[in-house]
């Protein structure tokens, strides 16, 4: 198995694990971590693509090995994912402070009484 295939499979596994966590885990913190897993998978895939070449430089016939453009994009992507995580964690901390709960399930109370009961 070549390196690119191995890393590609790792990326797919990370994305799969992250999707599972984001969809099935009820805890908001786990969802945030799962999002970061998917993000890592996507960035790893981007790295694999960079290693494989075939980008702008290869098309231009420079004979360069590998492609530097994805690295620049991955760094930007990391910053975006970091910002997203920061906002999500801040919201979660505030939510835990105001209502002492850490899940997103059942925040649509079917009847108003139950939500009042929870808030008190």
């Amino acid at each position: 198995m070549s390196g690119t295939t191995l890393f590609g499979l790792c990326a797919a596994a990370l994305v799969g694990l992250g999707l599972y966590g984001l969809i099935c885990q009820p805890g908001a913190l786990r969802k945030i971590l799962a999002f970061n897993l998917i993000g890592s998978g996507v960035f790893l895939l981007f790295g694999v693509i960079a290693q494989r070449g075939g980008g702008v430089l290869a098309l231009a016939g420079t004979g360069a090995d590998g492609d530097p453009v994805p690295q620049a994009l991955v760094i930007t992507g990391l910053v975006v994912a970091f910002a997203a995580t920061a906002i999500a964690v801040t919201l979660l901390v505030r939510l835990a402070e105001t209502s002492a709960r850490g899940t997103l399930e059942g925040d649509e109370p079917p009847a108003p009484e139950s939500s009042d009961a929870r808030r008190t």
């Binding site: 908001a28 969802k31 945030i32 919201l91 209502s99 997103l104 925040d107």
Partner: peptide
Amino acid sequence: LAAALRYLL
């Protein structure tokens, strides 16, 4: 806050 977190995620 819960609505915003759901939206964000």
